[in-house]
Every structure is written in structure tokens, then in C-alpha cells.
């Protein structure tokens, strides 16, 4: 299973990848630092899952999701973000997100978010 982790913070990408491993998933990872970069990665080698931040330069996480859905790409995607605004959660799920995990998160929260997605 390959997971694309999209965050403009290298530190946070490392934290997310470590948390996924700690949650017990045997995954390999690819990384991108914004939505535009992620879109190129997805077009080249589609991963099993995209875990993206919301606020990023160039292309945000929600713009990435909407761009994917606009081109008919139904890749699994969820957010790992410091945002917890209900209106943003609504927008995320209406746009096709599978989870919205708020930073800081625990390994248990990662497990709970990923279990139904990767079952």
C-alpha cells in the first residue's frame, strides 16, 4: 500500500508517516509539499490513499481534492489539518473526503480514521 502525504511542513510529513506506521499499517510513502506537486505525483503513480494538509501554498488540500474529482479521479483522500471549522469539514466531506483528522492527533485517532478507509 502506498500513501501520498501532502503537507508544506517536512516535519509534519514525518510525523504523519511515523503515526501511520505506529498505527500498524505496512505502508510505503511518497511525499509532496503542496497540492500542485501532489497532483503531478497522483497522475504519474496513483497511490492507494492521499493524506493532505488543508492550508498549503500554491494549491491547498481542498483545491487538490476538488481538482481530482473534477477530472473524475475517485482516489481515496482525507485531511490531516489544524483546521476544525464545521463549515470546512462540511465542504471536505461534500467534496469527497473520507476523513478529516485535526492536528495534533494521536496514533489512536490515525487508526480510527484509516481503519474504515483501508479495510
Amino acid at each position: 500500500m502506498q500513501i501520498l502525504v501532502v503537507d508544506d511542513s517536512k516535519a509534519m510529513r514525518s510525523i504523519v508517516m511515523r503515526a501511520v506506521r505506529q498505527a500498524g499499517y505496512d505502508a510505503t510513502f511518497v511525499e509532496a509539499s503542496n497540492g500542485a506537486e501532489a497532483l503531478k505525483v497522483i497522475h504519474a503513480t496513483p497511490p492507494s490513499l492521499v493524506m493532505a494538509d488543508w492550508n498549503m501554498p500554491e494549491m491547498s488540500g481542498i483545491e487538490l481534492l476538488q481538482a481530482l474529482r473534477a477530472e473524475g479521479n475517485q482516489i481515496k483522500m482525507g485531511f490531516v489539518t489544524s483546521e476544525s471549522d464545521p463549515s470546512m469539514r462540511d465542504l471536505a466531506f461534500q467534496s469527497g473526503a473520507l476523513f478529516m483528522l485535526t492536528k495534533p492527533f494521536t496514533p489512536d485517532a490515525i487508526k480510527a480514521a484509516l481503519a474504515p478507509v483501508l479495510a
Binding site: S82, E83, D85, T102, P104
Partner: peptide, 8 residues
């Protein structure tokens, strides 16, 4: 960034 999300 994380603190800002909680603050917001």
C-alpha cells in the same frame, strides 16, 4: 500552525 487551528 497547530496552535492557530486550536485558537481559531
Amino acid at each position: 500552525n497547530i496552535v492557530a487551528g486550536g485558537f481559531k
